[in-house]
Structure formats: C-alpha cells, structure tokens
Amino acid sequence: MGFDLQFGWTGTVSEVVLGRTRAEGGTRSVSYRIGGGTTLPFLDTDRPSPSPLIAFECCDNPRIWSTIVRDYCGDLVNDPAEWAKTAETVYGADMVRLNLTSTKERNFSDVAALKKTVESVLSATTLPLIIEGSNEPKIDSEVFLACGEAGQGERLLLGTAEASRYRSIAAAALAYDHSVIAQSPIDINLAKQLNILLREIGVARDHIIIDPYTGALGYGFEYSFSAMERIRFSALKGDADLAMPMCCAPADSLTIKEVRDAPADARDEMAVQWEVYTSIAAAVAGAEIICVRHPRSVGVLKEAFAGLKSHSHSRTAEVR
C-alpha cells in the first residue's frame, strides 16, 4: 500500500539489558531488554513498540536535592532504601536511579557507607537500578568500584561517563559486568567520540546508554530534542557508534525560573508539567529511559506512553 511510512533505514539500535532476574543470576524481579528499534520511536506498525522505561531518581543525601521533591516526599528522602521501595510500590516506576549525592560533600571519604547504601537499596526494591556515582576524579575510582561490587550480578547501569572522566566508571563496569551512561553536552559528534573512547577501552556497545544531555524546556531543550533525533537517525542509517539506546534526564527542570517562581500551591504541578512535557517530546525523539524526580510525573508518563505505543494493541507483559 502506498501510504505506509517509507524511510529505508538499514540500521538497528543495539540492545542493552538492564537488571538481572534470579534466573539470570541476579535478584531483580524483572529485567529489561531495550533498544532493537529499526525505525523512529513508536512508528513500527508491525510489532508493539516498547514503552520507554521510567526511572525514578532518589539520592542518599537530600541536602542538595530539589526542595520541591523534598517537601513532597517528606521523611522518605532521608532513607534511600525506603524511598526506592516507595518508587516501586507506590509511584509505579520501572527503575530506580540512585544518586550518591553524599559523595558531593566536602572531603567525602566513607566509601564503605556507599556500598551499604547500594546494598540496602538493592534489597529494598526488586527493580533494576541505575547508580549515579561521584563526580570528582579523586574519588571516582574507589566509588565506582564499590558500587560495581555491591551490585555484582545485577547488571546495573552506572552513571555518568563523560569525555573528561570515563576510565574509572568503565573499569568498574568491565570488572563487574555492568553498563554505563555516556553523557555528552548536546552534540552528536561528541556523543560518538565518547562511545568510541569507551569501546576502545573495552566497553561493549551493548553495555552503553547514550545521554545526549537534556536541557530543560525553555533552557536548551530546543537543542536536546534535535540532538536526540539526529542520534537516532544515525543509528538507523547504520552508524554503530551511535546506535545505542538513549536516556533523558530532565533534572534541570526543577531548578529553572518558571518552576522556582511558581506560587507555592502550584509548584508541584509546574514541576510535574515541566518534566512531563520534556519527557514526552524526548521519548518521541528517541529516549528509551526517562529519569524523573517528581513522584507524580511517573504515573502521568506511564499512561502517556501506553497511549503512544498503542496503535490499538495491548501491553505485552514480558517482552519489552
């Protein structure tokens, strides 16, 4: 029929596995295989499009976390394990992204405590985890190794590798068979370069997630959207060094002017809408993992993705 979409793509987005179930040697109740796309997101009419995964972000030291989220979540923010569990059982997230913000404290050195935190979060939730380690070259190596070890067998997604600091994280990923998030500042060429660097030191393509950096709506999203679309095209045109699934983390949303200046009774909704509008656009541009910080964003996005992926069929249980 002449009215079908015709793109003539030849490439495929590579598949990446997140988490390991008991049967696979881990302890998660579910594992996800994302990627595998052969056209633009949600446009495959022959088979069910996968729903992007929604990762809820929590942290182990809420001091530098958004006050909006702190106010909304209450005491939970002081207990990462309980918080992660709530993300699974109450908020309905598909994954948990644990940000080890304690490493940002001046003179941080308690790596043993980090390990405990990761372990407690792993036992509190059955979901696959993203662990966001340190952001300080001096402690990176120790921190990532500790995380990697604590999550051995669980196929964690470790973040975040950047062109200027990727060795420590790659080493931990290689040692314990985890995957990594590779972030570059809204630039397709830099994204490709970083992936090549990672590959050269041994990280396999199916262990990399691209984070093209999400500028907040109104603060760079006009660039992020097109950077994501372009990365997806390159993948579909056959560039293996850009053919990894992408993630979107609109974390900047919670610090922008519109959200900060919103009247107290509308602040939550402003935060949610900012995350939701960004996330939906990003999912359409190609992001397959969406990381949000406001609990209320999770449900809204779930419903939206269910509507997007259906051309009228229902959700498939195991196959993601």
């Binding site: 709506l217 109104g218 519109e258 919103a262 509308a266 402003m270 809408q273 509008y277």
Partner: peptide, 14 residues
C-alpha cells in the same frame, strides 16, 4: 497555569 507554561514553552522551543 502550569500546563499553559509548559505547553507554550515547548511550542516556542520546537
């Protein structure tokens, strides 16, 4: 108001 700002800002960006 929140939907308004998000929607019109996304439109402006795109």
């Amino acid at each position: 108001p929140a939907q308004t700002k998000a929607a019109l800002t996304l439109r402006q960006n795109i």
